[in-house]
């Protein structure tokens, strides 16, 4: 029982981690909590649905997985379109407000953007849940008492691959280092000659792409729903805060902790309270280590 819950926790945690990375990056580089991050996951899932539906006649599956190359195309398309959407929202909503004298205009705007995007999803795709495939996957036993589907194994493997890839991007490439530098000190980055506007664009591209992949993976293993991203926003924030806002690896760790905690909670609570667990855990962390874990104390 516990083994199975742990496995479920890692699977959910991987999805949360991918979304939380994007949240952490925008938080650090643009200096605001983006409440519309959840909707990037939602849009990613729906963009992929477009591609999957377009290839509906193609029957291709990779081994035991429920999908074939149309899903690869769908993932790439979702990442590209979600990045574009993120840049568009930044350009239309956040960029003009960066000049505002109202300090939290960006956060309020992101809250409004999240509502708007959610309504747009309902407007375009309708309120009913959707699925990439109607095939039922058979789960296999990988450890005594732990059963997972091939898709779930793929999910965890892809997440691990993306995190490693991101690590190399941030630590080895010029652009990646410039992103870390800008996150560290935007004004100094400007003085140093870093093209901050370009860094901001790439922040949305990386964060948006990871969010899209997270959305597709969530849609693949759970379901696609207009509220899916909003339902994940608390776990995303909790993961980012738990991991110490600012570090990619912290977000991954935070995601895993939240995913596992939410799943273990069914031992004590009805499963419908899963999202509240993330919240309680976050409050607990804030109470115990209000500044230590966050690293950025309020002055």
């Amino acid at each position: 029982m516990i083994g199975q819950l742990l496995a479920n926790g890692i699977i959910l945690g991987a999805t949360i981690a991918l979304g939380a990375i994007g949240l952490t990056m925008t938080y650090n580089i643009l200096d605001f909590a983006n409440f519309a991050q959840g909707e990037l996951l939602t849009f990613g899932a729906y963009f992929a649905l477009i591609a999957v539906s377009a290839f509906a006649g193609v029957h291709s599956t990779f081994g035991a997985l429920s999908f074939g190359w149309p899903m690869v195309v769908a993932l790439l398309l979702a990442a590209a379109l979600t990045s574009l959407l993120a840049i568009l929202v930044d350009w239309l909503v956040f960029r003009p407000l960066r000049r505002s004298s109202i300090q939290v205009a960006l956060v309020i705007a992101s809250f409004g953007a999240s509502l708007l995007l959610r309504h747009l999803v309902v407007l375009i795709w309708g309120p009913q849940p959707a699925y990439y495939t109607t095939n039922i996957q058979i789960s296999t036993q990988i450890l005594p008492g732990v059963r997972v589907t091939p898709d779930q194994i793929f999910l965890v493997a892809l997440t691990a691959l993306l995190v490693v890839g991101l690590h190399f991007f941030l630590s080895r490439t010029k652009l990646g280092k410039a992103m870390r530098a800008t996150a560290d000190d935007p004004q100094l980055a400007q003085v140093t000659g870093i093209d901050v506007a370009r860094v901001v664009r790439w922040t949305w591209i990386v964060g948006g792409s990871l969010a899209a992949v997270a959305g597709v993976l969530y849609g693949m293993t759970v379901q696609i729903l207009p509220e899916m991203g909003f339902n994940l926003i608390l776990p995303l924030f909790a993961a980012a805060i738990l991991g110490g806002v600012g570090s990619v690896y912290g977000a991954v760790l935070g995601g895993l902790v939240i995913g596992i905690a939410e799943n273990l909670s069914v031992l004590f609570l009805t499963p419908t309270y899963k999202p509240a667990i993330a919240f309680l855990l976050m409050i607990a962390v804030l109470l115990v280590r209000p500044t230590g874990i966050l690293g950025k104390p309020k002055l």
């Binding site: 010029k174 280092k177 870390r180 530098a181 996150a183 000190d185 100094l188 870093i194």
Partner: peptide, 16 residues
Amino acid sequence: IFKRLSVLENLEMGGY
């Protein structure tokens, strides 16, 4: 300085 970057990375950013 970029506090969270290494000394070497700080110099690399100088040459951005």
